[in-house]
Design a protein around this nucleic acid. Structure first.
Lengths: 193, 193
DNA sequence: GAACCATACGGACCGTCGGTCCGTTTATGC
DNA sequence: GCATAAACGGACCGACGGTCCGTATGGTTC
């Protein structure tokens, strides 16, 4: 099959929609108050265009999240020290969790939107499987570390968007304090007998 | 003020509604597919009664959750070994987390419904604060343990309903395996240098 | 640049849901 | 019994996610 390229206006609109959604989520205090109609209006586009381009609300949010997170994902997969492969596993696992925490702090609204949108839970979204698989692999390289599968889930749960939002947003814990707390915690998990 | 007792039919209906909701959540695969109208119909009651009695959907689910969880909460607060006070802190923290995991396994649908209902996140529901405060207190009793506040959040995140549901439900990990995995993990956290 | 067609557009429209409102019924105290 | 406050229940409302189809437009070919 010849794999026709999409029309120029379709590409333009797709970008406009993602940008509009990003803006609206950042502006509003709770992602559920941002309706699909709002996003369409902000992007200067009909509602039909949203649903044609992204399938449904979850699809749109996932696409946006994926686009923003992709750089970090790449860095972890093939980037330089300390995120990339080639870093000793204990240090790398800590670096990955720290990077994830920072991302969720920097994109709090978006991350929140994603976890709310993914039907019921973030689990089952393919990007979660990727993070879990990667982290589990790193943990498994630590000598004498057992239970890496569950530990990977549990460590990722420690940086879930709603928890981060609760601590940073509602309780006003400063960024560096959170990073330090997370580092202390991960150290406990990673350097256990 | 004379503090009039509620009418008998109101009490009866309240029970009927809670029982109906419990049944419906247990039956359906996803809590969001259980509507307030469904619950009212199942309880043989008008929709108005639901909202008068519980305020809104979140209130109803919280009331139900609270009712089911209360026994465990009591046991932790004032019960016998190993959940109650008087147990050495490392052992007690592990026991509390195990009890919470078991509860979420036994009431998977209900727990899922709660986390979905609480606007945005389970944080901010007063019962979460109670668990966090309690666990933090136990952790703080462990000699040389620092970062108990964040650690309490992180450990509770490891037994969140949607994670438990993902592992036990979608991935079919057996109950005892999960309990063992959690125990291994908590041991790492609690017995760190 | 004209004509053709696949592709994309957009907003009226639909079903459902949480939540409200108010006329009606009923339990309770005297 | 009777009066009355309390509770009932279901018609009703506004909002939302998602669909549908007549219309517009970018791309291609001559």
């Amino acid at each position: 099959m010849p794999e026709r390229r999409p029309r120029a206006d379709a590409v333009r609109n797709r970008e406009a929609v993602l940008a509009a959604a990003d803006r609206l989520f950042a502006r509003s205090d709770s992602p559920e108050h941002v309706s699909m109609a709002d996003i369409a209006a902000e992007a200067g586009v009909g509602k039909g265009t949203l649903f044609r381009g992204f399938g449904d609300r979850t699809g749109l949010i996932q696409a946006l999240y994926e686009a923003r997170l992709d750089p970090i994902r790449r860095t972890v997969a093939e980037g330089p020290h300390p995120l990339g492969p080639g870093t000793p596993p204990v240090q790398r696992a800590a670096a990955v969790l720290d990077a994830l925490l920072c991302f969720k702090l920097d994109h709090r609204h978006l991350s929140l939107a994603l976890e709310e949108a993914a039907t019921g839970s973030p689990y089952g979204a393919e990007h979660y499987d990727w993070w879990h698989g990667t982290l589990r692999g790193v943990l498994a390289e630590i000598p004498g570390f057992d239970g890496s599968d569950f530990a990977a889930h549990a460590l990722l749960a420690a940086v879930r968007a709603d928890l981060v939002d609760h601590l940073a947003g509602r309780r006003n814990i400063p960024r560096e304090r959170l990073r330090a707390d997370l580092a202390t915690y991960t150290t406990k998990v990673l350097n256990s007998p």
